[in-house]
Design a binder for these strands. Structure first.
Length: 258
DNA sequence: ATGGTGGCACCGCCA
Protein backbone atom coordinates (compact mmCIF):
# COMPACT_ATOMS: atom_id res chain seq x y z
CA UNK A 1 0.00 0.00 0.00
CA UNK A 2 1.36 3.39 -1.01
CA UNK A 3 0.14 6.68 0.40
CA UNK A 4 1.22 10.25 -0.26
CA UNK A 5 0.45 13.69 1.16
CA UNK A 6 0.86 17.00 -0.64
CA UNK A 7 -0.07 20.56 0.25
CA UNK A 8 -0.72 21.79 -3.28
CA UNK A 9 -1.43 25.46 -2.53
CA UNK A 10 -4.30 25.42 -5.08
CA UNK A 11 -5.11 22.15 -6.84
CA UNK A 12 -5.99 23.92 -10.09
CA UNK A 13 -2.53 25.53 -10.19
CA UNK A 14 -0.77 22.24 -9.44
CA UNK A 15 -2.36 19.73 -11.82
CA UNK A 16 0.81 19.79 -13.96
CA UNK A 17 2.63 18.27 -10.95
CA UNK A 18 -0.06 16.10 -9.35
CA UNK A 19 -1.40 14.26 -12.40
CA UNK A 20 1.98 13.10 -13.80
CA UNK A 21 3.10 12.08 -10.29
CA UNK A 22 -0.07 10.01 -9.85
CA UNK A 23 0.37 8.38 -13.24
CA UNK A 24 4.02 7.54 -12.61
CA UNK A 25 3.77 6.35 -8.99
CA UNK A 26 0.21 5.00 -8.81
CA UNK A 27 -0.25 5.40 -5.02
CA UNK A 28 -3.33 3.85 -3.42
CA UNK A 29 -4.05 7.14 -1.62
CA UNK A 30 -3.08 10.75 -2.14
CA UNK A 31 -4.07 13.28 0.52
CA UNK A 32 -4.24 16.88 -0.68
CA UNK A 33 -4.35 20.07 1.39
CA UNK A 34 -4.95 23.71 0.50
CA UNK A 35 -6.90 22.80 -2.60
CA UNK A 36 -8.24 26.38 -2.50
CA UNK A 37 -11.32 25.61 -4.51
CA UNK A 38 -15.06 25.29 -3.93
CA UNK A 39 -16.40 21.77 -4.43
CA UNK A 40 -18.21 22.52 -7.69
CA UNK A 41 -15.00 23.84 -9.25
CA UNK A 42 -12.70 20.99 -8.14
CA UNK A 43 -11.11 19.28 -11.17
CA UNK A 44 -12.55 15.86 -10.28
CA UNK A 45 -12.79 14.62 -13.88
CA UNK A 46 -9.00 14.76 -14.27
CA UNK A 47 -8.62 12.26 -11.40
CA UNK A 48 -11.43 10.03 -12.62
CA UNK A 49 -9.63 9.97 -15.97
CA UNK A 50 -6.65 8.31 -14.25
CA UNK A 51 -8.90 5.74 -12.57
CA UNK A 52 -9.07 7.45 -9.17
CA UNK A 53 -11.94 8.25 -6.84
CA UNK A 54 -11.83 11.58 -5.05
CA UNK A 55 -13.59 12.92 -1.99
CA UNK A 56 -13.23 16.60 -1.25
CA UNK A 57 -14.38 19.61 0.71
CA UNK A 58 -13.46 23.19 0.12
CA UNK A 59 -14.85 26.67 0.11
CA UNK A 60 -13.61 29.54 -2.00
CA UNK A 61 -10.20 31.08 -1.40
CA UNK A 62 -8.56 29.22 1.52
CA UNK A 63 -7.85 25.74 2.90
CA UNK A 64 -9.66 22.77 1.33
CA UNK A 65 -8.80 19.04 1.56
CA UNK A 66 -9.26 15.99 -0.64
CA UNK A 67 -8.42 12.29 -0.66
CA UNK A 68 -7.68 10.66 -4.00
CA UNK A 69 -7.91 6.86 -3.91
CA UNK A 70 -7.86 3.80 -6.15
CA UNK A 71 -10.57 2.20 -4.03
CA UNK A 72 -13.95 3.72 -3.48
CA UNK A 73 -14.26 4.97 0.11
CA UNK A 74 -16.80 3.18 2.29
CA UNK A 75 -17.45 5.68 5.06
CA UNK A 76 -16.53 9.36 4.81
CA UNK A 77 -16.39 11.90 7.64
CA UNK A 78 -16.23 15.58 6.72
CA UNK A 79 -14.86 17.98 9.31
CA UNK A 80 -14.22 17.51 13.01
CA UNK A 81 -17.83 16.59 13.63
CA UNK A 82 -18.31 19.33 16.25
CA UNK A 83 -19.92 22.76 16.31
CA UNK A 84 -17.28 24.59 14.26
CA UNK A 85 -16.58 21.50 12.16
CA UNK A 86 -13.89 22.92 9.81
CA UNK A 87 -14.88 20.60 6.97
CA UNK A 88 -12.29 22.26 4.72
CA UNK A 89 -9.48 21.19 7.10
CA UNK A 90 -10.12 17.51 7.81
CA UNK A 91 -11.54 14.66 5.79
CA UNK A 92 -11.40 10.99 6.72
CA UNK A 93 -12.48 7.82 5.00
CA UNK A 94 -12.33 4.06 5.48
CA UNK A 95 -11.23 1.60 2.82
CA UNK A 96 -11.47 -2.12 3.69
CA UNK A 97 -10.18 -1.98 7.25
CA UNK A 98 -7.90 1.01 6.70
CA UNK A 99 -8.80 4.50 7.87
CA UNK A 100 -7.17 7.52 6.21
CA UNK A 101 -7.36 10.85 8.05
CA UNK A 102 -6.21 13.87 6.07
CA UNK A 103 -5.77 17.16 7.92
CA UNK A 104 -4.75 20.71 7.18
CA UNK A 105 -4.00 22.01 10.67
CA UNK A 106 -4.41 25.82 11.11
CA UNK A 107 -1.04 27.51 10.72
CA UNK A 108 -1.55 29.92 13.63
CA UNK A 109 -0.28 33.22 12.19
CA UNK A 110 1.60 34.50 15.27
CA UNK A 111 1.76 33.48 18.92
CA UNK A 112 -0.31 36.45 20.12
CA UNK A 113 -3.06 36.04 17.50
CA UNK A 114 -6.49 34.43 17.92
CA UNK A 115 -5.49 32.10 15.08
CA UNK A 116 -2.79 30.60 17.29
CA UNK A 117 -5.26 29.94 20.14
CA UNK A 118 -7.49 28.39 17.48
CA UNK A 119 -4.63 26.16 16.36
CA UNK A 120 -3.96 24.86 19.88
CA UNK A 121 -7.70 24.29 20.40
CA UNK A 122 -7.79 22.51 17.06
CA UNK A 123 -5.45 19.79 18.37
CA UNK A 124 -7.72 19.34 21.41
CA UNK A 125 -10.74 19.01 19.13
CA UNK A 126 -8.83 16.51 17.00
CA UNK A 127 -8.15 14.38 20.08
CA UNK A 128 -11.88 14.29 20.88
CA UNK A 129 -12.62 13.41 17.25
CA UNK A 130 -10.16 10.51 17.32
CA UNK A 131 -11.63 9.21 20.58
CA UNK A 132 -15.13 9.44 19.15
CA UNK A 133 -14.58 7.86 15.73
CA UNK A 134 -11.47 5.67 15.87
CA UNK A 135 -9.59 3.14 17.96
CA UNK A 136 -5.79 3.21 18.19
CA UNK A 137 -5.47 -0.58 17.81
CA UNK A 138 -6.94 -0.34 14.29
CA UNK A 139 -5.07 0.40 11.07
CA UNK A 140 -5.13 4.18 10.73
CA UNK A 141 -2.95 6.60 8.82
CA UNK A 142 -3.01 10.28 9.72
CA UNK A 143 -1.36 12.60 7.28
CA UNK A 144 -1.34 16.12 6.03
CA UNK A 145 0.11 19.56 6.55
CA UNK A 146 0.20 19.47 10.36
CA UNK A 147 1.97 22.84 10.69
CA UNK A 148 4.31 21.46 13.35
CA UNK A 149 8.02 20.78 13.00
CA UNK A 150 8.42 18.23 15.83
CA UNK A 151 12.18 18.39 16.48
CA UNK A 152 15.22 20.65 16.05
CA UNK A 153 16.35 18.46 13.12
CA UNK A 154 13.08 19.33 11.36
CA UNK A 155 14.00 22.98 10.73
CA UNK A 156 17.06 24.52 9.08
CA UNK A 157 17.78 27.02 11.88
CA UNK A 158 16.24 25.81 15.17
CA UNK A 159 17.78 28.58 17.30
CA UNK A 160 16.31 31.35 15.17
CA UNK A 161 13.00 29.60 14.51
CA UNK A 162 12.30 28.64 18.14
CA UNK A 163 9.12 30.40 19.26
CA UNK A 164 7.47 30.27 15.82
CA UNK A 165 3.84 29.06 15.80
CA UNK A 166 5.03 25.82 14.15
CA UNK A 167 8.08 25.32 16.35
CA UNK A 168 7.70 25.87 20.09
CA UNK A 169 7.07 23.80 23.25
CA UNK A 170 3.33 24.53 23.22
CA UNK A 171 2.71 23.10 19.73
CA UNK A 172 5.06 20.20 20.44
CA UNK A 173 2.90 19.40 23.45
CA UNK A 174 -0.34 19.77 21.46
CA UNK A 175 1.04 17.55 18.69
CA UNK A 176 2.51 15.09 21.20
CA UNK A 177 -0.89 14.74 22.82
CA UNK A 178 -2.30 13.49 19.52
CA UNK A 179 0.69 11.24 18.86
CA UNK A 180 0.33 9.67 22.30
CA UNK A 181 -3.18 8.56 21.33
CA UNK A 182 -1.43 5.99 19.15
CA UNK A 183 0.52 7.43 16.21
CA UNK A 184 4.07 6.81 15.04
CA UNK A 185 5.93 9.23 12.74
CA UNK A 186 6.58 6.96 9.77
CA UNK A 187 9.20 9.25 8.22
CA UNK A 188 11.25 9.26 11.45
CA UNK A 189 10.92 5.47 11.71
CA UNK A 190 12.94 5.20 8.50
CA UNK A 191 15.16 8.25 8.97
CA UNK A 192 15.96 8.43 12.68
CA UNK A 193 17.96 11.52 13.62
CA UNK A 194 18.45 12.51 9.98
CA UNK A 195 18.51 16.31 9.68
CA UNK A 196 17.99 18.44 6.59
CA UNK A 197 14.89 16.65 5.27
CA UNK A 198 12.19 19.25 4.71
CA UNK A 199 8.71 19.38 3.20
CA UNK A 200 8.10 23.14 3.18
CA UNK A 201 10.11 25.99 1.69
CA UNK A 202 8.89 29.55 2.15
CA UNK A 203 8.30 31.32 -1.18
CA UNK A 204 9.53 34.51 0.47
CA UNK A 205 12.99 33.12 1.16
CA UNK A 206 15.16 33.51 -1.91
CA UNK A 207 16.01 30.11 -3.45
CA UNK A 208 14.85 28.39 -0.23
CA UNK A 209 14.68 24.92 -1.81
CA UNK A 210 17.99 25.32 -3.64
CA UNK A 211 19.66 26.28 -0.35
CA UNK A 212 17.58 23.71 1.58
CA UNK A 213 16.20 26.34 3.98
CA UNK A 214 13.09 24.38 4.88
CA UNK A 215 10.83 22.92 7.51
CA UNK A 216 9.42 19.39 7.93
CA UNK A 217 5.76 20.12 8.68
CA UNK A 218 4.02 17.61 6.37
CA UNK A 219 3.73 14.22 7.96
CA UNK A 220 2.58 10.64 7.57
CA UNK A 221 1.79 8.97 10.90
CA UNK A 222 0.33 5.53 11.44
CA UNK A 223 -0.98 3.45 14.31
CA UNK A 224 1.28 0.67 15.58
CA UNK A 225 -0.55 -2.14 13.74
CA UNK A 226 0.14 -0.34 10.45
CA UNK A 227 3.44 1.41 11.19
CA UNK A 228 5.00 -1.97 11.99
CA UNK A 229 4.67 -2.81 8.31
CA UNK A 230 6.01 0.44 6.87
CA UNK A 231 8.75 -0.19 4.32
CA UNK A 232 9.82 3.33 3.39
CA UNK A 233 8.91 6.97 3.78
CA UNK A 234 10.46 9.72 1.70
CA UNK A 235 10.18 13.36 0.75
CA UNK A 236 9.81 13.98 -2.97
CA UNK A 237 12.04 17.02 -3.49
CA UNK A 238 11.59 16.99 -7.28
CA UNK A 239 8.03 18.27 -6.72
CA UNK A 240 9.70 21.51 -5.62
CA UNK A 241 12.07 21.71 -8.58
CA UNK A 242 9.44 22.01 -11.30
CA UNK A 243 7.65 24.82 -13.06
CA UNK A 244 5.32 26.71 -10.71
CA UNK A 245 5.88 24.54 -7.63
CA UNK A 246 3.86 24.58 -4.43
CA UNK A 247 5.71 25.90 -1.38
CA UNK A 248 5.34 22.36 0.02
CA UNK A 249 6.64 19.12 -1.44
CA UNK A 250 5.05 15.70 -1.58
CA UNK A 251 5.76 13.09 1.11
CA UNK A 252 5.05 9.41 0.46
CA UNK A 253 5.21 6.11 2.31
CA UNK A 254 4.90 2.44 1.49
CA UNK A 255 3.44 -0.28 3.71
CA UNK A 256 3.11 -4.03 3.36
CA UNK A 257 5.12 -7.01 2.17
CA UNK A 258 6.27 -5.92 -1.26
C1' DA B 1 16.05 43.98 6.09
C1' DT B 2 9.62 44.83 9.52
C1' DG B 3 10.65 43.03 3.11
C1' DG B 4 10.28 38.97 0.22
C1' DT B 5 6.40 35.44 -3.26
C1' DG B 6 2.29 33.23 -4.52
C1' DG B 7 -2.67 31.99 -4.62
C1' DC B 8 -7.43 33.31 -4.53
C1' DA B 9 -10.43 36.51 -3.91
C1' DC B 10 -11.65 41.06 -4.82
C1' DC B 11 -9.55 45.93 -4.18
C1' DG B 12 -7.01 42.22 1.41
C1' DC B 13 -6.08 37.79 3.41
C1' DC B 14 -3.51 33.94 4.46
C1' DA B 15 0.48 31.29 4.28
Amino acid sequence: MKIATYNVNSIRSRLHIVLPWLQKNRPDYLCLQETKVADDKFPAAEFAGLGYHVILKGYKQHAGVAIVSKQKPQKVIFGLDDETNDADRIIAATYDGLAVINTYVPQGQSKDSPQYAYKLAWFRRLKKYLQKHFQPQNRIVWCGDLNVAPEAIDVHDPKRILGHVCFNPEVWSAFGNIKSWGFIDVFRRHHPAEAGQYSFFDYRVRDAAGRNLGWRVDHILATQSLAGFSRACNIDLPTRFTEKPSDHVLVYAEFGDH
